[in-house]
Design a protein around this nucleic acid. Structure first.
Lengths: 112, 112
DNA sequence: TCGGATTTCTCCTGTTTTGTATAACATATC
DNA sequence: GATATGTTATACAAAACAGGAGAAATCCGA
């Protein structure tokens, strides 16, 4: 694994999407949420593969819901953020914040 | 490569260390800076490999300085953050911020 | 003052984890 | 069945790591 307690870039993004969606999170919505917020294309496979790894590490858990009465209403696999995942998210963010602390990217108009 | 315009987790950390150190940044100090701020052990090889990748992408440039009058004062390879690197740093951070926006990790005492 | 011991740093090699795409498979509606 | 919505399988490239070998420069004892 990366180092230890920190999340990789995409892992972090996927985990955050799971956090955003709560009980409504499943493959397709998670993917859409990522695309919506980051304005970048994401392949289906990338999402599922990452989700599987995240589950393996205990950061999320999943369960199959009932199939909806919609065309092609195959039963969905829902994902939920687990405490360990929330913790990983927090420590990764805290670590990044510490690295950013005091950085000034050359008086450009950007962020404070 | 990761996706496109975004930095991997460790790339981001290394690049930030370079930004922090300015002209004083070279392999060993960069490594130390990372260990100091993140409280995690980092292998030498990981740092140099990442630095090489970063340079290949045009995010940093390097030059060899003169050797100092110190025991083992071998000439060092210095690194400097380039505009493209600063940009990558910013867009990665902005993207992550957008993903975090609105996330509440369950009323835990942690961050706001 | 020579030459090895010592220190500081860089680079090479190999491996594991992540990140990603493509396509096949499953299941419900019509 | 044809078609829409979801999930899984498979494969691979890139990124993250570890460790030790190798280089360069100084220090120091005889």
């Amino acid at each position: 694994m990366a180092i230890d307690r920190f999340l990789g870039e995409f892992e972090q993004v996927v985990l955050l999407a799971v956090a955003q969606l709560g009980e409504d999170g499943y493959g397709t919505t998670i993917r859409r949420e990522i695309e919506r917020r980051t304005a970048r294309g994401v392949s289906v496979g990338a999402v599922y593969a990452t989700l599987a790894r995240l589950e393996e590490k205990g950061f999320v858990t999943s369960w199959y819901g009932e199939s909806t009465a919609k065309r092609g209403g195959r039963s969905k696999r829902h994902y939920r953020l687990e405490p360990a995942g929330a913790e990983a998210l927090e420590s990764t963010r805290a670590m990044l914040d510490r690295m950013w602390d005091g950085v000034d990217l050359g008086t450009r108009p950007g962020r404070a």
